[in-house]
Amino acid sequence: MKLTKAVLIEAVYRKHENLTQRQATEAVESLLRLAKDALIDGNKLLLSGFGKFSIQDKKPRRGRNPQTGDDLILESRRIVTFKSSGKLRKIVNG
């Protein structure tokens, strides 16, 4: 099973009977928007008991096109990294 945004919204809606479907959608969308904004600004996102998301800057580097074998330069970029918490690792690994 995949945990999609729609499944997450439905789970929030079912778990909190005082919320409407629209309110559950807004709550999940708000959380995701806050998380994206924090990462875009270069901040770390720490979810206690789950893990830490952070941004890492990658320098330009040499690469190779696997189809043609031509050398090329891969531009610098930012990537999102995730490090799970010890609690989550322990639960996942049994």
Rank of each mutant, 00 (worst) to 15 (best):
K2E: 11
K2C: 02
T4P: 08
T4C: 09
T4Q: 05
K5Q: 09
A6T: 15
A6V: 10
I9Y: 12
I9L: 10
E10W: 10
A11V: 02
A11E: 07
V12S: 08
Y13N: 08
Y13F: 14
Y13S: 09
Y13E: 09
Y13W: 12
R14G: 12
K15D: 14
H16S: 05
H16C: 03
H16E: 09
E17W: 00
E17A: 01
E17V: 02
E17P: 04
N18T: 13
L19N: 05
T20Q: 08
T20I: 05
Q21M: 15
Q21S: 15
Q21H: 15
R22A: 14
R22G: 07
Q23V: 08
Q23A: 14
Q23D: 14
A24D: 03
A24Q: 09
T25C: 00
T25R: 06
T25V: 01
E26Y: 06
E26S: 08
A27E: 04
A27N: 03
A27T: 10
A27I: 08
V28H: 05
E29Y: 04
S30E: 11
L32V: 06
L32W: 04
R33P: 00
R33T: 11
L34K: 04
L34A: 06
A35N: 06
A35S: 14
A35D: 11
K36N: 03
K36I: 03
A38T: 08
L39H: 06
D41P: 00
D41V: 00
D41W: 01
D41M: 05
G42C: 07
N43G: 03
K44I: 05
K44W: 07
L45I: 11
L46I: 12
S48I: 03
S48N: 02
G49M: 02
F50N: 12
F50Y: 14
G51A: 07
K52S: 07
K52W: 00
F53W: 11
F53T: 09
S54P: 00
S54I: 01
I55H: 01
I55W: 01
I55M: 09
Q56M: 07
Q56N: 07
D57Y: 09
D57K: 13
K58V: 02
K58M: 03
K58Q: 11
K58P: 01
K59S: 07
R61F: 04
R62S: 15
R62I: 13
G63P: 01
G63V: 04
R64T: 13
N65Q: 05
N65R: 05
N65F: 07
P66Y: 01
P66V: 00
P66E: 03
Q67W: 06
Q67T: 08
Q67V: 03
Q67K: 15
T68M: 13
T68G: 13
T68F: 12
T68L: 11
G69L: 13
G69N: 10
G69Y: 13
G69C: 12
D70N: 15
D71H: 03
I73T: 15
E75M: 02
E75K: 15
E75Q: 11
E75N: 12
S76C: 07
S76H: 11
R78A: 01
I79N: 04
V80R: 06
V80S: 04
V80Q: 03
V80E: 05
T81Y: 04
T81V: 08
K83W: 14
S84Q: 12
S84V: 10
G86V: 10
G86C: 02
K87P: 00
K87N: 08
K87E: 10
L88N: 02
R89G: 12
I91K: 10
I91Y: 06
V92K: 08
N93Y: 09
N93F: 09
N93L: 14
